[in-house]
Amino acid sequence: MQPSAGPALPHARSGAMHWITTAAAVGALVGAVALVQPADASPKAGGRPATPSGPPVAAPDPHAVTYPLTCAPGATVDVISHVSADLDGDGRPETIAVVRCHSDTGTPPSGVYVLSAPAHAGGLPKIAVTLVNPKDDRQISDFRLAGRSVKATVLGFSSDDTPRCCPDLRRTYTWEWRDGRYVALPGPANTI
């Protein structure tokens, strides 16, 4: 075997210190890369993190909620209509429910509520947002889901003298999830 020509180069020798230094440098680089995210990496719209993958989450049951309605003694709460969809993009469906006190005569005011899934398995759904407060004395018709938006016609009264059987004002509403909250987009108000 012939000796190598020229002096021994420092980078050509492989000693224990060389490998320890290389491993430390590679480890630091991998750690730094794991902490840095690309500029376009951001949480889902609304600032909520994505839900881990797993079995699908059931939509909240609108009949399992206690609604903040002041009903006559002994009267129950009627769920008039409901739809479910992932409106806020967090990977879990919400349920939007139209409810009112049960009445054999007349039409009590309705409330529209967004229900979220329970915080833990076996828990009850909860009211996340009130879209229409029954205290505002409104009735709801043409309630539906359009993509990730909720739409309804909201009926009201022009004065306290207007009989509660016969709303005389109508306005369409669309509710959308924007910037971390539900935004009401009212249409023009019309008389009936």
Rank of each mutant, 00 (worst) to 15 (best):
T162A: 00
G106Y: 06
T105Y: 08
D40A: 10
D78T: 08
K44R: 08
T22L: 14
G122Y: 14
G180R: 00
Y173G: 03
L115V: 15
T95P: 13
G147A: 05
C101Q: 09
T191N: 08
T153K: 04
R48Y: 00
T107D: 10
V65N: 15
K135W: 01
P43Q: 03
Q37C: 01
P55K: 01
L131K: 09
A72K: 07
D88K: 00
G156S: 06
V183G: 10
A34Y: 03
P49C: 13
Y113E: 09
D40N: 12
Y173Q: 04
V112H: 07
L185E: 09
G180C: 05
D88P: 06
L131V: 08
S84P: 06
D86I: 07
R164F: 00
V114E: 11
W175F: 12
I96H: 02
V132M: 11
G15E: 14
L185P: 01
L87Q: 11
P118M: 14
G122M: 11
P38C: 00
L35H: 05
S158N: 06
P118T: 13
P7G: 05
D168G: 07
A32V: 05
P108F: 05
L29I: 10
T107Q: 01
W177A: 12
I80Y: 05
T66I: 13
N190C: 00
H11F: 13
A146M: 01
Q37Y: 11
S42F: 00
S53F: 08
N133T: 04
R100T: 02
T66N: 14
F157Y: 09
R144Y: 00
Q139H: 06
Y67M: 02
Q139I: 05
D179R: 13
R92L: 11
R48D: 10
L29T: 07
V36R: 10
A189C: 06
S158Q: 05
P43R: 03
T22I: 11
V114A: 04
I20P: 09
T22W: 04
I127C: 12
S42E: 05
V77H: 07
A50V: 01
A97C: 14
G156F: 04
A32W: 13
R171G: 09
P52E: 09
A72D: 05
S159H: 03
P167M: 10
N133F: 07
V150G: 05
R144P: 06
P3H: 08
T162V: 15
L185T: 10
D142H: 06
C71D: 03
N190K: 03
V30Q: 04
A189M: 08
T66H: 14
M1H: 07
V57I: 14
P49D: 02
A85Q: 14
R144F: 08
K44N: 13
S158L: 03
V114I: 05
A16K: 14
P60D: 08
P55T: 04
A12H: 13
R170C: 00
P56K: 05
A5N: 13
A8E: 07
R171V: 07
Q2F: 13
P10H: 11
P188R: 06
R92G: 02
R171E: 11
V183M: 07
S53G: 09
M1C: 09
G46C: 09
I127F: 12
S158G: 09
G111A: 03
